[in-house]
Simulated assay, not measured.
Amino acid sequence: MYWGGYTLTLAELQLFKEASNNGPYDYYHMMSGADLLLVNNKEFDSFFEKNQGKEFIEFKDEQNEHDPEIKRRTKLYHFLQNYRRRFRIQWINNIFIFFERCSLLLQLILHVNRVKNLDWQIKLGSEWASVTNDFVIRMLQEEPKISKLFRWTNCSDELLIQTIAFNCGFMNRMYHNPNGADNLRFIDWVRSKNGSPHIFTIADKELLEDATAGALIARKFSLDKDSEIINYILTPIARIN
């Protein structure tokens, strides 16, 4: 998999497919290895039982169909999206970045718009979501169209779930969180670096405790940076389960 490439979307679809084949389950939670639950398993299960049938998806801007970020990612063909951060030697990455920009400039000159005839409205948001079995089944049914639409789209992993939800009849099932993000994730973008969320440390323990008012999952954590906060989060949860 490569950052920003379609391979990430393929990986997400494969995860949903494998989980669905072993299901069905009431909910499917898209998480990474850098995520942790902020509550114990009983509280986690109880919440979703209480809100059965809701979709927990965060939209960046649910009302703005002309978001310039969506246009930037989808209008042109991003042929070299897999190579911009692929190599450890930065000057090699820079070569691919240069040719990618040349390709995009040429397409702008030629007025390329690869989604001008699309009958879906593309939406943007977090790829981290909790969705129902109905949602997963419908998403997998749309896989051929997803492939055609997102294969040359930049960072399509942040468009996939929102686009399916908006265009396939799930908007009336959205959960609206009065205390935080609608996907129940607590992610600190205020202190982000290089497009990556802040990695929590033990200094953030009170912040994470407060986050449980509106979130069930938090990211990012790293054993290499601070294992103390991970133990702090996990120990009371393990004790209660």
Rank of each mutant, 00 (worst) to 15 (best):
K50F: 11
K225H: 08
N133C: 05
R72E: 15
T74V: 05
A19N: 08
S32E: 06
L140E: 04
S156D: 05
A19C: 10
H111D: 02
E143L: 01
I161T: 01
I70Y: 03
E49G: 11
N133A: 06
L159K: 01
C102V: 14
L76E: 06
E127Y: 13
S103T: 03
S46G: 10
L38E: 04
E12Y: 08
N21D: 15
T163L: 06
K123A: 00
E143F: 03
N113D: 00
I137E: 14
I233L: 03
L8V: 09
N94P: 02
L108G: 12
V190G: 11
N51L: 09
I161D: 06
L140N: 04
Q107V: 01
G53I: 05
L38I: 07
F166T: 07
I240N: 15
R114N: 02
N41I: 15
N172E: 15
F150N: 00
A238D: 14
I95D: 06
K193M: 10
G214A: 07
I70F: 02
K123H: 03
D157A: 05
V131M: 02
E209L: 13
E18L: 14
N22S: 15
P236M: 09
Q121V: 04
F47L: 10
H66E: 15
Q121Y: 01
G195R: 10
L160A: 02
A211I: 05
E209M: 13
R72K: 12
Q52M: 13
G169H: 03
L80A: 00
L13Q: 04
K116F: 01
G4A: 05
E158H: 02
S32D: 10
F79A: 08
P24K: 00
M139R: 00
G195K: 09
M171W: 08
S222E: 01
I229A: 04
Y2K: 13
T201K: 07
N177F: 13
I92Q: 08
F59C: 02
F44K: 07
E158Y: 00
L10K: 13
N194S: 14
L15M: 15
F170M: 02
S196T: 13
L36M: 13
E49R: 15
L207R: 12
V190I: 14
H29Q: 15
R114P: 00
F87Y: 06
S192Y: 09
P68S: 14
I92Y: 12
F221I: 04
S147G: 12
M1H: 14
W3C: 13
F87E: 04
L184K: 07
Q52E: 11
L223Y: 05
M171T: 11
C155A: 09
S20N: 15
L234A: 11
N133K: 01
G195P: 09
E142T: 05
H198E: 02
T201V: 05
Q52I: 11
L106M: 07
S227W: 02
E12A: 09
L104G: 04
L234W: 03
W91M: 04
H176F: 12
